[in-house]
Structure formats: structure tokens, C-alpha cells
């Protein structure tokens, strides 16, 4: 049996070719990750794999032996400032896109490496994530505020 680490815990990968999203949701019960489109076009299913955002609807779980996967539950468990910032900025309405937005935003802030994020960079980082409700302004504001908090700027 091969394993991957999910939110810091080693987990047995499935033997069949189910996608990462189905494994995370159905086998591990981590239903924070959504599958809004199932076709690679919305970014809503994004999780972090070794620190990079990937579309969990579009990759089989089994090929990620020894991968380090972080879902939105993992961000919540370490009280990522992005979550509070999204609440404070009203950056979610229906919430369907939110897990993917948070994960993509975390990857971006990590890439900033402690430097303050900028709006163009944040928009580029979120360019693969679709939100049908909020119009992005609040989401980008929430990411920038959390980034300033993390960088101490």
C-alpha cells in the first residue's frame, strides 16, 4: 500500500484510479474540498500538493505517493489568517468556490516568501479560480490583507 500525507497525517492511497478529490472526500471524509465543475475549469477543487495548487478533480490520487497534500481543513487546523480575512472582508457568498480560493491564495502568499503581496500578483494567482457570486474584489482584498498580516507590512 502506498501512502501520501494529508494535512500532516499519513494516509493510504487507493489502488484504483479515482481522482484526488473523490479520495479526499469519500475515503477521508474531508468534504471541504468541492467539485464544482469536474472538468478542470473552475479551480474550486484545488488542494496544495507539495506547496503548489493542483486541481484535485483532474489527477488520480494513486500517482501522488509520498506527496504532501493540504486541503482547506489543513488551513483551518493551523488557523491560517486567510480564513479570518475572508470572513472579515465578506469574500464568500455561496461558498462553493471558497476552499479553492483559499488554497490558491495560500500558495501565492507562500510564494511571496514573507514579502507583501500585490494586487496584480494576487489576481494572477487566482486567475484559474472562478467565483460566480462575489465579483472577486472582496476576495482579492482579503488575500492582500492576510498577506500584509503575514508579512508584518
Amino acid at each position: 500500500m502506498t501512502t501520501a500525507e494529508v494535512n500532516g497525517r499519513p494516509r493510504d492511497l487507493p489502488e484504483d484510479g479515482r481522482c484526488l478529490a473523490d479520495w479526499i472526500r469519500d475515503d477521508l471524509g474531508l468534504t471541504g474540498t468541492k467539485i464544482p465543475c469536474g472538468s478542470g475549469h473552475c479551480g474550486g477543487c484545488s488542494v496544495l500538493l507539495d506547496g503548489r495548487p493542483v486541481l484535485s478533480c483532474s489527477t488520480p490520487a494513486v500517482v501522488h505517493e509520498d506527496g504532501r497534500i493540504t486541503t482547506v481543513e489543513g488551513l483551518a487546523a493551523r488557523q491560517d489568517p486567510l480564513l479570518r480575512s475572508f470572513v472579515e472582508h465578506g469574500a464568500a457568498q455561496c461558498g462553493y468556490c471558497t476552499a479553492g480560493m483559499l488554497v490558491a491564495a495560500r500558495a501565492y502568499l507562500d510564494e511571496c516568501g514573507g514579502a507583501a503581496p500585490d494586487e496584480a500578483g494576487a489576481r494572477r494567482a487566482l486567475s484559474g479560480n472562478v467565483c460566480r457570486c462575489t465579483g472577486y474584489t472582496a476576495i482579492v482584498a482579503a488575500v492582500l490583507a492576510a498577506g500584509r498580516e503575514c508579512s508584518g507590512a
Partner: peptide, 9 residues
Amino acid sequence: VGGPAVRAM
């Protein structure tokens, strides 16, 4: 091509 998550895969 795509956004960062598409390009990462």
C-alpha cells in the same frame, strides 16, 4: 495555459 493549478499539472 490555464491558471497556476493547471500549469502545475
